[in-house]
Amino acid sequence: FDIYVVTADYLPLGAEQDAITLREGQYVEVLDAAHPLRWLVRTKPTKSSPSRQGWVSPAYLDRRL
């Protein structure tokens, strides 16, 4: 999967189903980028939180090589 970094805090609107909150600087794996406005991502697990999966706007993501 492609690795992206979150460029700004992402707080989903209440109406968005299956969306997750992301923090600036967080790394995520993009699982599904087929839709231009919503990408399915999975967060990297940390010592304090397990990995999470949900939909985010790709405008908040920047690809890492």
Results as ranks from 00 to 15, higher is better:
46 T>S: 11
4 Y>N: 01
18 D>W: 08
53 Q>V: 15
25 G>C: 03
40 L>I: 02
36 P>Y: 05
64 R>A: 15
60 Y>D: 03
61 L>P: 00
43 T>V: 09
14 G>Y: 12
25 G>S: 02
24 E>H: 09
61 L>V: 03
65 L>H: 12
55 W>T: 03
23 R>A: 08
56 V>P: 00
6 V>S: 02
12 P>N: 08
30 V>F: 01
10 Y>D: 02
27 Y>P: 04
24 E>F: 11
42 R>E: 03
17 Q>S: 12
46 T>D: 12
64 R>C: 11
19 A>W: 15
63 R>M: 12
56 V>M: 06
59 A>D: 13
59 A>W: 08
45 P>L: 04
44 K>W: 15
44 K>I: 15
28 V>E: 00
30 V>N: 00
65 L>K: 09
26 Q>K: 02
21 T>F: 14
47 K>C: 09
42 R>G: 02
23 R>V: 11
11 L>S: 12
25 G>L: 02
36 P>K: 06
38 R>I: 06
29 E>P: 00
59 A>Y: 08
26 Q>F: 03
56 V>Y: 01
3 I>R: 04
61 L>S: 01
24 E>N: 08
61 L>K: 00
65 L>V: 14
34 A>F: 09
53 Q>M: 14
24 E>V: 15
30 V>H: 00
11 L>V: 14
40 L>C: 04
41 V>Y: 01
22 L>N: 01
23 R>H: 12
45 P>E: 11
61 L>G: 01
9 D>C: 04
43 T>W: 08
34 A>H: 12
55 W>Q: 02
57 S>H: 12
51 S>V: 10
29 E>L: 10
32 D>V: 08
9 D>W: 03
39 W>G: 00
20 I>Y: 06
39 W>H: 01
25 G>V: 01
19 A>N: 10
42 R>Y: 03
7 T>E: 02
29 E>R: 06
12 P>K: 06
59 A>V: 11
21 T>A: 13
9 D>L: 05
24 E>I: 14
58 P>H: 03
31 L>I: 13
60 Y>M: 05
31 L>T: 02
58 P>K: 04
27 Y>C: 07
23 R>Q: 11
49 S>T: 13
37 L>Y: 11
52 R>F: 10
41 V>L: 01
16 E>S: 10
36 P>H: 06
14 G>H: 13
20 I>V: 07
22 L>V: 06
64 R>E: 13
54 G>L: 11
6 V>Y: 01
6 V>H: 00
34 A>E: 11
29 E>Y: 14
55 W>E: 01
51 S>E: 08
58 P>I: 04
65 L>Q: 14
30 V>Y: 01
59 A>P: 02
13 L>T: 15
45 P>N: 06
57 S>A: 07
34 A>N: 13
48 S>I: 11
56 V>W: 01
62 D>W: 07
43 T>I: 08
45 P>T: 07
13 L>H: 13
57 S>F: 04
2 D>N: 11
36 P>W: 04
52 R>E: 12
40 L>W: 11
50 P>F: 05
39 W>M: 01
1 F>R: 10
24 E>K: 15
38 R>G: 03
41 V>I: 09
30 V>Q: 01
18 D>T: 06
19 A>C: 07
14 G>A: 14
34 A>D: 10
49 S>K: 10
4 Y>H: 03
59 A>I: 12
31 L>Y: 02
10 Y>E: 02
11 L>A: 11
61 L>Q: 00
11 L>D: 12
53 Q>H: 06
35 H>I: 04
6 V>K: 00
45 P>R: 08
50 P>I: 07
16 E>H: 09
25 G>M: 02
63 R>H: 13
37 L>V: 07
15 A>V: 12
58 P>D: 01
24 E>A: 13
63 R>G: 10
58 P>L: 02
23 R>Y: 15
21 T>M: 13
28 V>Y: 01
48 S>M: 12
27 Y>W: 13
56 V>T: 05
45 P>Q: 09
23 R>P: 03
37 L>A: 11
15 A>H: 15
13 L>E: 14
64 R>G: 11
49 S>V: 10
4 Y>T: 02
26 Q>A: 05
52 R>A: 10
24 E>L: 12
27 Y>F: 13
29 E>F: 13
41 V>C: 03
59 A>Q: 12
30 V>M: 02
8 A>S: 11
27 Y>D: 05
55 W>R: 02
52 R>H: 10
56 V>L: 04
23 R>I: 11
50 P>Y: 05
8 A>I: 08
48 S>C: 09
56 V>I: 10
22 L>R: 00
63 R>K: 15
15 A>K: 04
26 Q>C: 05
30 V>G: 00
17 Q>M: 12
4 Y>A: 07
59 A>N: 11
35 H>A: 06
37 L>E: 15
62 D>K: 14
45 P>K: 07
12 P>Q: 06
12 P>R: 06
40 L>A: 01
54 G>M: 09
28 V>C: 03
19 A>S: 12
25 G>A: 02
20 I>D: 03
13 L>M: 13
47 K>R: 11
61 L>N: 01
30 V>C: 03
7 T>W: 05
39 W>V: 02
9 D>N: 08
2 D>F: 14
22 L>A: 01
64 R>P: 15
53 Q>A: 07
48 S>V: 11
41 V>F: 01
3 I>K: 03
65 L>P: 14
17 Q>H: 13
3 I>M: 09
19 A>L: 08
1 F>D: 07
48 S>W: 13
55 W>M: 04
7 T>D: 02
62 D>I: 12
43 T>R: 02
27 Y>R: 06
46 T>R: 05
54 G>I: 10
45 P>G: 12
